[in-house]
Write a protein that binds this DNA or RNA. Structure first.
Lengths: 64, 64
DNA sequence: AATATATGTAATATATATTTAACATAATGT
DNA sequence: ACATTATGTTAAATATATATTACATATATT
Protein backbone atom coordinates (compact mmCIF):
# COMPACT_ATOMS: atom_id res chain seq x y z
CA UNK A 1 0.00 0.00 0.00
CA UNK A 2 1.54 3.26 -1.11
CA UNK A 3 0.96 6.21 1.14
CA UNK A 4 -1.66 8.81 0.28
CA UNK A 5 0.48 11.61 1.62
CA UNK A 6 3.46 10.57 -0.44
CA UNK A 7 1.29 10.39 -3.55
CA UNK A 8 -0.18 13.83 -2.93
CA UNK A 9 3.26 15.29 -2.28
CA UNK A 10 4.68 13.86 -5.50
CA UNK A 11 1.66 15.08 -7.44
CA UNK A 12 2.52 18.57 -6.24
CA UNK A 13 6.12 18.07 -7.33
CA UNK A 14 7.53 18.60 -3.86
CA UNK A 15 10.40 16.81 -2.11
CA UNK A 16 10.09 15.78 1.52
CA UNK A 17 12.40 18.64 2.45
CA UNK A 18 10.35 21.20 0.54
CA UNK A 19 7.09 20.09 2.09
CA UNK A 20 8.70 20.02 5.52
CA UNK A 21 9.86 23.60 5.20
CA UNK A 22 6.42 24.80 4.11
CA UNK A 23 4.68 23.22 7.09
CA UNK A 24 7.37 24.13 9.62
CA UNK A 25 8.47 20.56 10.19
CA UNK A 26 11.60 18.59 9.43
CA UNK A 27 12.31 16.23 6.58
CA UNK A 28 12.59 13.38 9.04
CA UNK A 29 9.15 14.01 10.45
CA UNK A 30 7.62 14.03 6.97
CA UNK A 31 9.42 10.80 6.15
CA UNK A 32 8.09 9.07 9.25
CA UNK A 33 4.55 10.27 8.62
CA UNK A 34 4.73 8.93 5.08
CA UNK A 35 5.91 5.61 6.44
CA UNK A 36 2.79 5.54 8.60
CA UNK A 37 4.86 4.97 11.74
CA UNK A 38 3.83 8.19 13.35
CA UNK A 39 0.96 9.72 15.25
CA UNK A 40 1.32 13.32 14.17
CA UNK A 41 -0.43 16.25 15.78
CA UNK A 42 -3.69 17.58 14.35
CA UNK A 43 -2.11 20.92 13.53
CA UNK A 44 0.63 19.29 11.49
CA UNK A 45 -1.94 17.14 9.66
CA UNK A 46 -3.93 20.25 8.81
CA UNK A 47 -0.84 22.12 7.62
CA UNK A 48 0.16 19.22 5.39
CA UNK A 49 -3.33 18.87 3.98
CA UNK A 50 -3.61 22.56 3.14
CA UNK A 51 -0.18 22.64 1.55
CA UNK A 52 -1.04 19.64 -0.63
CA UNK A 53 -4.50 21.06 -1.41
CA UNK A 54 -6.25 18.11 0.18
CA UNK A 55 -8.51 17.70 3.20
CA UNK A 56 -7.95 15.75 6.39
CA UNK A 57 -10.26 13.04 5.13
CA UNK A 58 -8.39 12.82 1.83
CA UNK A 59 -5.08 12.11 3.52
CA UNK A 60 -5.75 10.70 6.98
CA UNK A 61 -9.17 9.08 7.05
CA UNK A 62 -10.11 5.58 6.02
CA UNK A 63 -13.57 4.15 6.17
CA UNK A 64 -13.65 0.91 8.09
CA UNK B 1 -18.73 29.68 18.48
CA UNK B 2 -19.80 26.46 20.10
CA UNK B 3 -17.54 23.53 19.52
CA UNK B 4 -18.38 20.93 16.91
CA UNK B 5 -17.01 18.13 19.04
CA UNK B 6 -19.08 19.16 22.03
CA UNK B 7 -22.19 19.31 19.87
CA UNK B 8 -21.54 15.87 18.39
CA UNK B 9 -20.88 14.41 21.84
CA UNK B 10 -24.11 15.81 23.26
CA UNK B 11 -26.05 14.57 20.24
CA UNK B 12 -24.80 11.11 21.10
CA UNK B 13 -25.90 11.59 24.71
CA UNK B 14 -22.42 11.09 26.13
CA UNK B 15 -20.70 12.88 28.98
CA UNK B 16 -17.08 13.97 28.67
CA UNK B 17 -16.11 11.13 30.99
CA UNK B 18 -18.00 8.53 28.96
CA UNK B 19 -16.47 9.67 25.69
CA UNK B 20 -13.03 9.78 27.30
CA UNK B 21 -13.30 6.20 28.46
CA UNK B 22 -14.39 4.98 25.03
CA UNK B 23 -11.42 6.60 23.29
CA UNK B 24 -8.88 5.74 25.97
CA UNK B 25 -8.36 9.29 27.07
CA UNK B 26 -9.15 11.27 30.19
CA UNK B 27 -12.01 13.60 30.92
CA UNK B 28 -9.58 16.49 31.18
CA UNK B 29 -8.17 15.85 27.73
CA UNK B 30 -11.66 15.80 26.21
CA UNK B 31 -12.48 19.01 28.01
CA UNK B 32 -9.41 20.77 26.66
CA UNK B 33 -10.02 19.55 23.12
CA UNK B 34 -13.58 20.85 23.29
CA UNK B 35 -12.25 24.20 24.47
CA UNK B 36 -10.08 24.27 21.35
CA UNK B 37 -6.96 24.90 23.41
CA UNK B 38 -5.31 21.69 22.38
CA UNK B 39 -3.40 20.15 19.53
CA UNK B 40 -4.45 16.52 19.91
CA UNK B 41 -2.81 13.60 18.17
CA UNK B 42 -4.22 12.26 14.93
CA UNK B 43 -5.02 8.90 16.51
CA UNK B 44 -7.08 10.55 19.22
CA UNK B 45 -8.93 12.64 16.67
CA UNK B 46 -9.74 9.52 14.68
CA UNK B 47 -10.93 7.67 17.78
CA UNK B 48 -13.19 10.56 18.77
CA UNK B 49 -14.60 10.88 15.26
CA UNK B 50 -15.41 7.19 15.00
CA UNK B 51 -16.99 7.11 18.44
CA UNK B 52 -19.19 10.08 17.55
CA UNK B 53 -19.96 8.65 14.10
CA UNK B 54 -18.40 11.61 12.34
CA UNK B 55 -15.37 12.04 10.08
CA UNK B 56 -12.18 14.00 10.63
CA UNK B 57 -13.46 16.71 8.32
CA UNK B 58 -16.76 16.91 10.18
CA UNK B 59 -15.07 17.65 13.49
CA UNK B 60 -11.63 19.06 12.82
CA UNK B 61 -11.56 20.67 9.38
CA UNK B 62 -12.60 24.16 8.42
CA UNK B 63 -12.48 25.58 4.95
CA UNK B 64 -10.56 28.83 4.83
C1' DA C 1 34.98 9.29 -11.22
C1' DA C 2 33.16 13.08 -8.81
C1' DT C 3 29.51 16.00 -7.12
C1' DA C 4 24.80 17.05 -5.86
C1' DT C 5 20.14 15.72 -4.64
C1' DA C 6 16.59 12.88 -2.37
C1' DT C 7 15.66 9.71 0.97
C1' DG C 8 16.47 6.30 4.95
C1' DT C 9 17.71 5.84 9.56
C1' DA C 10 19.57 6.21 14.31
C1' DA C 11 20.87 8.77 18.89
C1' DT C 12 20.02 12.28 21.75
C1' DA C 13 17.66 16.51 23.23
C1' DT C 14 13.57 19.33 23.66
C1' DA C 15 8.76 20.60 23.46
C1' DT C 16 4.38 19.39 24.39
C1' DA C 17 0.35 16.13 24.57
C1' DT C 18 -1.71 13.41 28.00
C1' DT C 19 -2.28 11.46 32.59
C1' DT C 20 -2.89 11.63 37.45
C1' DA C 21 -4.64 13.67 41.44
C1' DA C 22 -6.94 17.15 43.61
C1' DC C 23 -10.18 20.78 44.60
C1' DA C 24 -14.07 23.79 43.08
C1' DT C 25 -18.82 24.79 41.44
C1' DA C 26 -23.30 24.29 39.45
C1' DA C 27 -27.28 21.36 38.77
C1' DT C 28 -30.20 17.58 40.06
C1' DG C 29 -32.40 14.18 42.98
C1' DT C 30 -33.55 12.31 47.53
C1' DA D 1 -29.82 19.91 53.80
C1' DC D 2 -27.30 16.19 51.76
C1' DA D 3 -25.41 13.30 48.16
C1' DT D 4 -24.47 12.64 43.38
C1' DT D 5 -23.21 13.87 38.73
C1' DA D 6 -21.08 16.75 35.15
C1' DT D 7 -17.84 20.04 34.22
C1' DG D 8 -14.01 23.56 35.07
C1' DT D 9 -9.45 24.15 36.38
C1' DT D 10 -4.70 23.70 38.18
C1' DA D 11 0.01 21.43 39.42
C1' DA D 12 3.08 18.03 38.77
C1' DA D 13 4.55 13.67 36.50
C1' DT D 14 4.95 10.86 32.37
C1' DA D 15 4.77 9.62 27.54
C1' DT D 16 5.67 10.77 23.12
C1' DA D 17 5.89 13.92 19.02
C1' DT D 18 9.30 16.62 16.92
C1' DA D 19 13.92 18.75 16.27
C1' DT D 20 18.79 18.36 15.80
C1' DT D 21 22.80 16.24 14.21
C1' DA D 22 24.97 12.87 11.83
C1' DC D 23 25.97 9.19 8.63
C1' DA D 24 24.50 6.05 4.86
C1' DT D 25 22.79 4.86 0.15
C1' DA D 26 20.85 5.34 -4.32
C1' DT D 27 20.25 8.08 -8.37
C1' DA D 28 21.17 11.60 -11.64
C1' DT D 29 24.34 14.88 -13.68
C1' DT D 30 28.70 16.76 -15.24
Amino acid sequence: MVNKIKLARIEKGLTQAQLAKRVNATRQTIGLIEKGEYNPSLNLCIAIAKELEKTLNDLFWEES
